[in-house]
C-alpha cells in the first residue's frame, strides 16, 4: 500500500479523464473509490484534490464520502481483520468472535494496534452466509470461525499474545 498520501500521477490522470466526461459529478463516487482503494483511506488532502480535479464543491465531496460506509478517513492496520456481522454470522456467534479479536489485540473497533500492524473492523454481510461466522483478512476467507480459533488465526500473521 502506498504510504505517500499525495495522489499519484495515474490517479490524477484518471480524475482528469472523469472531469472531461459527460456529467463529471456522477464520477465522484468512482473517483473516491479509486483513491480509497489505493491509499486505504481518504485524507483531507485527497478529498481536496478530488474536489479540485472533478470541479465539485469540497462540501459535496465530504458529504458524499461520509455518507457511504466504504469510505474511511483514518488509515487502517496493515492487516485489516474484517468480521462479518450479517444475520447468519450474528446468529452463529460473530459477536463473540469479534470480541475475542479485540481482546487478543487489545484494541477498539477500527483502531489500529500501536505498531500499526492490525486493525479490526466489522462488515455488513459479505454474502458467504453458509460459512458463518466469516472472518476476512486480505484475500483470505476464514469460515465457521469460533472464538477459540482466533489466537491461531492471528499467529498466521505473526501475532503473539504477551501473556
Amino acid at each position: 500500500m502506498n504510504r505517500d498520501y499525495s495522489l499519484s500521477s495515474e490517479i490524477v490522470q484518471s480524475l482528469q479523464d472523469f472531469s472531461e466526461k459527460n456529467r463529471p459529478e456522477s464520477y465522484l463516487i468512482p473517483a473516491l473509490q479509486m483513491v480509497q482503494e489505493s491509499y486505504g483511506f481518504l485524507s483531507r488532502e485527497h478529498l481536496d484534490e478530488v474536489a479540485l480535479l472533478l470541479r465539485v464543491p469540497y462540501a459535496k465531496v465530504t458529504g458524499v464520502a461520509s455518507f457511504y460506509h466504504f469510505f474511511n478517513f483514518k488509515p487502517s492496520g496493515e492487516n485489516e481483520i474484517v468480521i462479518c456481522t450479517g444475520t447468519a454470522c450474528h446468529v452463529r456467534g460473530a459477536g463473540a468472535v469479534l470480541d475475542r479479536f479485540l481482546e487478543e489485540l487489545q484494541v477498539k473497533l477500527e483502531q489500529p494496534t500501536e505498531d500499526g500492524r492490525f486493525s479490526v473492523t466489522d462488515a455488513r454481510c459479505v454474502g458467504a452466509c453458509a460459512q458463518a461466522p466469516v472472518v476476512i483478512i486480505g484475500e483470505k476467507v476464514y469460515s465457521k470461525v469460533t472464538p477459540d480459533d482466533v489466537p491461531e488465526i492471528l499467529s498466521e500473521y505473526g501475532f503473539e499474545a504477551d501473556s
Binding site: 456481522t85 450479517g86 444475520t87 447468519a88 454470522c89 450474528h90 455488513r124 454481510c125 454474502g127 458467504a128 452466509c129 453458509a130
Partner: peptide
C-alpha cells in the same frame, strides 16, 4: 446492491 445481511442470491 444486495445489502440485506444474510442474503447472497444476487452475488451468486
Amino acid at each position: 446492491d444486495e445489502g440485506d445481511p444474510g442474503a447472497f442470491m444476487d452475488r451468486n
